[in-house]
Amino acid sequence: MTRRSLTAACTVSAVLWASAASAEIAPADVVWEDEIAIPASLSGAPGDPDAGRIALSSRSVGNCLSCHVNSDMPEHDFHGDVAPPLDGTGARWSEAELRGIVANAKRAFPGSMMPVFYNDNPADYIRPGNAYTGRAYDPETFSTLLSAQEIEDIVAYLVTLTEW
């Protein structure tokens, strides 16, 4: 590969990367359908169900098993039961609805105990903290509970859960 073609390849990939980054939808710009669904990918990219499986079960990422039983994950002990099971979510809800529920379940279920995973506005919360330190939030670092891509990955995994 010549120096020129390498430069060209780098330029193309940089442009692609930039367009992918700019395609991410900020929490305040999310377009909702029927109040509860989000038709468009939040990251602008498709989700990866394998990455979503890990993000959903990981305590430091989605930590969804805190509250939800998921029969597809017998390798994890102690699934919580304060929320409905995840079994069959892919059969009951469309991808857009699942994206809406993961991003902000309080739209589909007013008063739900489920946290809003895609909101980066500290003014919407009462005494928001700096992660789990117990201290006040830092305006520089306050962010959504899940990234746009993590939500896409989790949604891609949830749509595979059609058995129940």
């Binding site: 946290p115 009462i126 509970l145």
Partner: peptide, 24 residues
């Protein structure tokens, strides 16, 4: 009052969901 970014009150767990499990 539902405090914090997770918006949880004492009542969410101890009035509405006592007897259930949050993980273990």
């Amino acid at each position: 009052t539902r405090f914090g970014q997770l918006e949880l009150s004492c009542a969410n767990c101890h009035e509405d969901n006592w007897g259930r499990m949050i993980r273990a």
